[in-house]
Design a protein around this nucleic acid. Structure first.
Lengths: 222, 222
DNA sequence: TAGATTGTTAATCGATTAACAATC
DNA sequence: TAGATTGTTAATCGATTAACAATC
């Protein structure tokens, strides 16, 4: 990993996809791959892949291509897998619990330390082995355990406030699953939002376009 | 809605955000807004907003700005809200159930008709009022009910196959929550994926960058 | 060696921003 | 009317694609 000046978000968004694709290739026993083959398998151009990698250094061999395992490891390091990142979940409702149970934090380089909730009925229990604490103990926990990312799965009304408590206590990364925009006037705090609603509405637009085209086509046929 | 030639994905991705922001403004009782005020509230330039809207027609008044309610409705129509879209969920594990219980399908213009699973223990029951059928009955159900979108919350191994069954039975939109890429050689089928893993890894990259900068800064200070 | 494929610079394309006449 | 703000075209900026020398 070398250059690194200003990597565009477009590139950053592709890095996890490279990582995922290379993992699959590795599992499938593929040892080497060229930028053009990788591009074809992902719907990208060879140029773009080489240009993307160029942001970070040299990972291939001329005339040969890339060693799948090696490139995967390199991109993993760029992404920060293996940096010992830690995470806590705020909110153990349906969504919070589903994520805790389903998501493979460890294969993304994260260790899930704990969950927090206001509901005394769940506080003290465990979800998939993860202890659930009362939200009142958040600051105390954070002062004792360094936490890289706080996952917000709380009601919308509580999102901004909970985010602020996390940031105030030193958490730099917020993974926001609430369907609202949250922000902090802090250049050192990163917010990544997963907006289901935006995703479905984009899909809704695209299928609506299809439908409109279909309708126009039928009209023409008459 | 007028022009519409080729709307870039960048614009499409912003439309739901506009819709969300305008809904919030409306709820807050704001009646009119200018492109510059809307831009400021969303971290976009006024130019960009006007340029985006220009793809679809004229929605404002010179010297006045946009009527919040009106613009919201127009963007809603562009997005296809109110087109009577329908949806089914495949897979009622933790994630599937959490989405069924949590997500406000109706406020995004979708009607959730049913869920499907292989597990006989859940088949026949209801999740948040939604009936769960056995996957064997999928094709029969689809032939009786027009479905716009199929939500995939099945194990990775089943994702592609389930997608193909949906497409074969006439479903045009796939909302993919499995952590794998699926694709169909069908220009009329739209796949929208929600990759938690890609999202977390992008966040991981960004906080790792912060950490690297911090480390470099500390080094300099010595 | 010859062929293949990279790293890297240059060219192109597309998206964002700026500018401003039209007009409410 | 004067001021504000749009719709829309032109300018700029950034990202993608093309090209090719270097070299395995």
């Amino acid at each position: 990993m070398k250059r690194n000046a200003k990597v565009s978000t477009a590139v950053i968004r592709r890095l996890p996809r490279y990582y995922r694709q290379l993992s699959e290739l590795q599992q499938a026993g593929v040892v080497r791959i060229s930028s053009s083959a990788l591009g074809k398998s992902m719907g990208l151009t060879a140029s773009q892949i080489r240009q993307d990698l160029f942001c970070f250094g040299e990972f291939g061999q001329q005339g040969y291509g890339y060693k799948v395992e090696n490139l995967k490891e390199e991109i993993g390091e760029i992404l920060g897998i293996g940096r010992g990142h830690t995470l806590i979940v705020l909110g153990t409702g349906n969504l919070g619990r589903a994520i805790i149970r389903n998501f493979k934090f460890s294969s993304n380089g994260f260790r899930l330390l704990a969950a927090f909730d206001v509901d005394r009925a769940v506080v003290g229990s465990r979800v998939a082995g993860v202890p659930v604490y009362h939200i009142d103990g958040l600051e105390e926990f954070l002062s004792a355990h360094p936490v890289s990312v706080g996952l917000l799965a709380v009601p919308i009304a509580a999102a901004q406030e909970m985010g602020e408590r996390l940031v105030k206590a030193g958490v730099r990364g917020i993974w926001n699953f609430t369907n609202c925009e949250i922000s902090f006037r802090r250049p050192d705090v990163v917010v990544e939002s997963v907006h289901f609603s935006d995703s479905l509405l984009a899909l809704s637009y695209m299928i609506s376009q299809q439908e409109r085209q279909d309708a126009a086509g039928e009209k023409e046929e008459l």
